[in-house]
Computed example of a mutant assay.
Amino acid sequence: MTKLLLASIHDVGPRSESAVDHLIDIMAPILGGMKLAMLVVPDHWAQAPLAAAPAFQTKLRGWADQGVEMFVHGWFHKDLAEHSGMAAFKAKHMTASEGEFLGLSQDEAARRMADGRKLIEDIIGRPTTGFIAPAWLYGPGAHAALAQSGFAMAEDHMRVWRPQTGEVLARGPVITWASRSVPRQRSSKFFAALARHTLHGQRVVRIATHPGDVTVPSLIASIRATYAAFAARRPAARYAQLMGPV
């Protein structure tokens, strides 16, 4: 059984350019090059439209030319919906107003998926790898839209799957970090340290970083240690390899 390491940078867009550069400087030497995915937000919080940032578009295409896989990562990333029940719990405790696709209708989710895909594919000049909802949170409308979207793959906290068939391509928790409060920083560092000792048996290990991570030195230290621990035992791979030989 070939074991794989999948690395990603979330929330990529004009407003996160310097942080993304910083994360690349950390990750690429450990991974052996640009063996990573980027999750691109078309207009982060309606404050950073990718369509109006030609210099960053050029940079994005350059990364794609180097082999970086590009995922559509919502449209605004911000969640403006009203929630109830379990969705309200997820919106409050699993993210800070970032779960854009948790409360969308099928039609609105489909529109944002299609618009994001067209924008990003026009920029990079090739198909996107898939769709990943902001904060890995999907409501019923998003799941229904995703099944009809034509995206080859999607991801949440616990799996990667084919939206059209539901086939699971990889299982296991994403290793990630949270920078927005000291308790969350501590808990994410604890989980990463635990993962470095317990997840080596997983066929696929996914590690995700965010621009906010670069603001906390202790998170950067944890990120370096975590990538190094897994890269020493398995190659950095592409999400596309989950679909079969490429």
Rank of each mutant, 00 (worst) to 15 (best):
T128I: 15
M70N: 01
D156T: 04
A52G: 01
M34S: 12
S105H: 05
K3V: 11
V12W: 01
A240D: 11
D21F: 08
D156S: 04
A53K: 02
E155W: 05
L169I: 10
V160N: 04
E69N: 07
L23M: 12
H44N: 13
S97I: 13
A195H: 00
A225F: 03
A91M: 05
K90R: 15
G32Q: 12
I24Q: 09
H143P: 00
M153P: 05
K3F: 12
P140M: 10
F131C: 08
G125M: 08
D122S: 14
R15Q: 06
A145V: 02
L4T: 04
P42N: 07
G67P: 08
I132P: 00
R112C: 06
A7P: 03
A37Y: 03
A170F: 10
H83D: 09
D156G: 04
V205R: 02
Q106P: 05
V40Y: 01
P127D: 10
R233G: 06
T58V: 13
G201K: 09
D25P: 03
K90M: 14
M27Y: 02
P235I: 05
A178W: 00
E82H: 14
K78V: 09
L4G: 01
A154I: 07
A46L: 15
P127G: 12
K35A: 10
Q148H: 13
T95W: 08
D115A: 14
I223K: 01
T209V: 13
A195G: 02
A52K: 14
S179P: 05
R162Q: 14
L102V: 13
P235H: 10
A114F: 08
A135Q: 07
A133R: 03
P49V: 04
